[in-house]
Nucleic acid binder design. Structure first.
Length: 242
DNA sequence: CCGGACGCCTGTCGGC
DNA sequence: TGCCGACAGGCGTCCG
């Protein structure tokens, strides 16, 4: 995992009762009595409840042993995840403190994005992928949202109009809601808590579709690199703002 | 503060 | 068939 698991974690959590489970952005918070376990699944991590006796697989890193003979087991093949103990009040941890709003909550809208983007010359795609601006918009959903909103991924965030930000905020909410309904996006091996893959990959309109025709206008989908990340867009449906 | 680059890590895939 | 480099991704950190 990208940070070492907190030293002495065993001692801290032993005997503690799990009082709550929350999510903030892509972080999960297991609320215990004297502190919080803050964890992140990175891009390939998973959690399962298993009998403690189940032999661990190669990428199983940690078991949180429960009193009923089961355990919460964390697997994280690419070790981009995180598992740490904190006694900060929830939301006050440095990793959480400056996170932007939840996109599906009230208060995330075009006005908000418009306000945050004034004066920014950064391209709009990395802008909406910045967790300080809004959480939850990863590389796939950023491309999809910008397509739905009709905005090119490379235009400067500060040049996009209020009306387009209204469209974009709405598109982000739609894309995330639809993906949640479909069980997420399984490009390779992601499975939900029921063991089934997510089916949103079938609904992707631009991501990964380089050279294929746009579902709206049949123009060929293009791929560009923006901020070291692959970005996909339709050159006809998505407007530039320069 | 801002923006760009980089590193972390491993499985997979395309090219030779 | 085997090897190797490129790539994917979230996000913290570092540097100018």
């Amino acid at each position: 995992m990208r940070l070492p698991v907190t030293e002495g974690l065993e001692v801290k959590v032993t005997g503690e009762v799990i009082g709550g489970l929350r999510r903030r952005g892509k972080y999960l918070l297991l609320e215990l009595q004297d502190g919080v376990i803050l964890l992140h699944l990175g891009m390939s991590g998973s959690l399962r409840i298993l009998p403690v006796s189940t032999p661990p697989g190669v990428h199983d890193h940690l078991d949180l042993i429960l009193e009923d003979g089961q355990c919460l087991r964390m697997r994280d093949p690419r070790r981009f995840g995180l598992f740490l103990w904190t006694e900060y009040p929830p939301d006050q941890h440095p990793l959480l403190r400056s996170l932007g709003p939840e996109p599906l909550d009230e208060g995330f809208d075009g006005d908000y994005l418009f306000g945050r983007s004034r004066g920014r010359r950064l391209a709009i795609k990395p802008f909406i992928m910045d967790a300080k601006v809004v959480v939850g918009v990863g590389n796939i959903y950023a491309s999809e949202s910008l397509f739905l909103a009709g905005i090119r991924p490379d235009c400067p965030a500060g040049s996009v109009s209020k009306q387009d930000y209204d469209q974009l905020a709405s598109a982000i909410r739609t894309v995330l809601s639809d993906s949640i309904s479909a069980g997420g996006t399984s490009l390779r091996d992601f499975v939900g808590e029921d063991g089934h893959p997510g089916y949103f990959a079938r609904q992707l309109r631009v991501y990964g579709r380089i050279g294929q025709s746009c579902l709206v206008c049949e123009t060929l989908i293009q791929q560009v690199r923006i901020g070291q990340r692959s970005s996909f867009f339709c050159p006809k449906c998505q407007k530039r703002h320069d």
